[in-house]
Design a protein around this nucleic acid. Structure first.
Ligand SMILES: [Mn+2]
Ligand SMILES: [Mn+2]
Ligand SMILES: [Zn+2]
Ligand SMILES: [Zn+2]
Lengths: 148, 148
DNA sequence: AAATTATTGCAACCGAGTCGCAATAAAGAT
DNA sequence: ATCTTTATTGCGACTCGGTTGCAATAATTT
């Protein structure tokens, strides 16, 4: 199995794009942890590691990584973009607490089946499948009951 | 079963808010069709019907309607908000064509089961569950193959 | 009818994300 | 190794969806 860097380099070559230290630094940072991230967080993490880079370049790199399937968008409905790396990971869905923001990742084999079903039923070529469940975790649920 | 207007009036009364023609016009327009909509579309539709209203009030009303569960956000990942009315409708998910934007709505009984399962497994009180599947419809899929 | 205060419209504002451009630097050709 | 081509970067200006402060208005309560 190729590394994410190899995937990137291959994609760049195939599309007449160039390999740059900026792109590789960003990609490395994205795959350094399993955390979900937004542009500001990523920018900060890079700054802290001494990588000098502009936000414009980060935005541009993220679009590139989306195109080659290394990352995907995660919808937090909070007005700006969040992402996570997906290359090398099983597809998963998110259960998020509206109180504290905790995120539980879970896999659902039914989703894979559903994709096949949808593809067949509606003659669609499925590209992505995002399931986001929201609610209150045990702790936040209790706090909430009291205040009602 | 109560009408959406009754739901709204009840919510307003319970929260010390006021019933206004603006809010009722907006709500009526939202439930006039089954279309998904964004703020601009809704604003235009209201203008065309001669309802004079500011966009600020639409934004404020939509937040209100979200709070009382009359509408929900729909994620199109295109940089601005989309909504649909949900009161009086079964929960459904979306299959959207990345080429032409066509939207197929479908129900998946497994999702309901999954919610119960998640609630039990992780002690979460589930509030919402959004499934968005993206891909290419038969037509757009063919057009796409040619251009590759 | 008067008093209270939520709501509206407007316009100024905010901020995430984009874009044009000049400087830089990859990659290929010689 | 140097030259040429052109993709990429950083910067700052810009866009535009969405928010907010405020004075005027109007829904409710008394
Ligand atoms: Mn995740
Ligand atoms: Mn729908
Ligand atoms: Zn919580
Ligand atoms: Zn299509």
């Amino acid at each position: 199995m190729q590394s994410e860097q190899e995937i990137l380099r291959q994609y760049l070559k195939e599309n007449g794009l160039r390999r740059t230290p900026e792109r590789e630094h960003i990609l490395q940072e994205i795959f350094a942890t399993h955390e979900h991230f937004d542009v500001d967080e990523l920018y900060l993490r890079l700054c802290q590691k001494g990588v000098k880079i502009s936000k414009a370049s980060i935005y541009r790199a993220l679009r590139l990584f989306l195109d080659c399937g290394l990352i995907r968008e995660v919808d937090f409905s909070d007005g700006h973009w969040h992402f996570e790396h997906i290359y090398g990971h099983n597809q998963h869905a998110h259960l998020r607490c509206l109180g504290c923001g905790e995120i539980v990742e879970f896999e659902d084999p039914n989703l894979t089946l559903l994709q096949g079903q949808l593809g067949r039923d509606y003659h669609y070529q499925i590209v992505s499948c995002h399931l986001e469940v929201k609610g209150y975790c045990a702790t936040c649920g209790k706090t909430r009951e009291k205040s009602l």
